[in-house]
Design a protein around this nucleic acid. Structure first.
Lengths: 239, 239
DNA sequence: GAGTGGTCTAGACCACGCA
DNA sequence: GCGTGGTCTAGACCACTCT
């Protein structure tokens, strides 16, 4: 995948060092990094080189920079995580916030499809979270979320899971979700959709199949969301 | 929308100057810009400042830089335009290329919905392009594309339109499409879908509603694509 | 070898946040 | 007033392309 470097720019090395530190939890979410000057001195490079790396990491939304204050580990707060990866809106563009409306959690052996999606070992176990979500008080989304039980030990014993799981992954397990790959298609509502969403059997349903990737490109979560299609759209801006 | 600058960094001014030149067609797609040094001298700034701007424009995919050669206006080639904004794939991720399979073009008065979507005047006229597309020889997509007749004079008289309209917009009309806003939802196939796509009435259809924006954030094109849903997905990576 | 973009440095000054 | 990030400069050297 990655080609032979042959030549490895300084800022690339600095980049790897800093990413490693972040991954290893050298700083907690929300915590400030050392200043450009001190990082530069410590790593033996110029401030400009450190700056280039910090800017790149900021563009990747791993860090946040505030003039006059410092550079911080980006936090997957409820708000931010929600709007970064939650793409459901009203036709025309109005952003929506889903509320939670029922959830079940269980641990079981991984199925073949799950092992394939998440690159799991043959005897791996997974945590399955099933949740229904409402928008404006109406049932709208039914989600099945699958993660490796090994990666998230004890997650099934938590009393309540946050609305945005990604902030939990980050703060409790040190796993940063930085990107997702989604595939969207249309289906007809089944009897189970009728029970979960209150739609008629045979009405159109939008199905969103998402794999969430961590900073190290590891496949961390598989999530299939079934969305009632009248009054909602899946909205994306491509650039 | 835009706030008062109050303070306007040099590189911002240089950015605006260069974007204006590109928009005004100072260089043709594929053509090389002057070197960093000569731009710096001409604009009275340092090479580093010019570089920052050129890097930013490269990130926006408006320019391409090649070490040892120069900086070029990015071309919306068939290949690149296709893969940049065409998000249809096989489940699992395999990218697809659509073939054209029938097209009609007409000019008519804009409807209210079209005026709203494209910010058109009350008496505006539009060009409507209806096309069917096949994938692997099977009808798969039905598209209705609407653009302002004023923005694209004579486009309806062209003998044949390219597979990717965006390269035509760029080379013949100097309009660069840099982003799109898409809304995806599910519907049931109608009789017209049955005729165009060969699917049964009542089967699930993925509908993609896209507005394409030019460099100046102008709404240039409205496109509604109806996609047969078995065997195809709308695939996107969020970061 | 000449010319281009790519990396890196050292140092200056500006804008911002805070004590 | 101090420390932070943000902008800008001038100059050096490296890597790549073409002649």
């Amino acid at each position: 995948m990655t080609e032979t470097p042959g030549y490895r720019p300084l800022y690339r090395q600095v980049y790897d060092i800093l990413v490693n530190r972040v991954v290893q939890g050298a700083w907690r979410p929300g915590e400030a990094l050392p200043s450009e000057q001190s990082l530069a001195k410590e790593l033996g490079v110029s401030q400009g080189t450190v700056r280039k790396v910090l800017d790149a990491l900021t563009a990747e939304k791993l860090l946040e920079r505030r003039q006059g204050k410092g550079t911080y580990i980006a936090e997957h707060t409820q708000e931010r995580a929600l709007f970064r990866f939650f793409r459901i809106a009203r036709p025309g563009g109005e952003r929506l916030k889903p509320e939670r409306a029922g959830e079940t959690v269980k641990v079981r052996a991984a199925r073949a499809a799950e092992r394939a999606k998440l690159d799991l070992e043959r005897d791996a176990r997974v945590v399955e979270i099933t949740r229904n979500r409402s928008i404006d008080g109406q049932p709208a989304i039914h989600e099945v979320i699958v993660v490796s039980a090994q990666l998230f030990p004890g997650i099934e014993k938590r009393a309540s899971l946050p609305n945005t799981l990604y902030s939990l992954y980050q703060t409790e397990y040190g796993i940063n979700i930085v990107s997702t790959r989604e595939e969207v298609h249309a289906e007809l509502a089944t009897a189970s959709d009728h029970r979960a969403l209150g739609v008629e059997v045979g009405s159109p349903i939008l199905v969103i199949d998402r794999v969430a990737l961590s900073l190290q490109e590891r496949k961390v979560e598989w999530r299939v969301s079934r969305l009632k299609s009248d009054g909602f759209v899946y909205a994306v801006t491509l650039t």
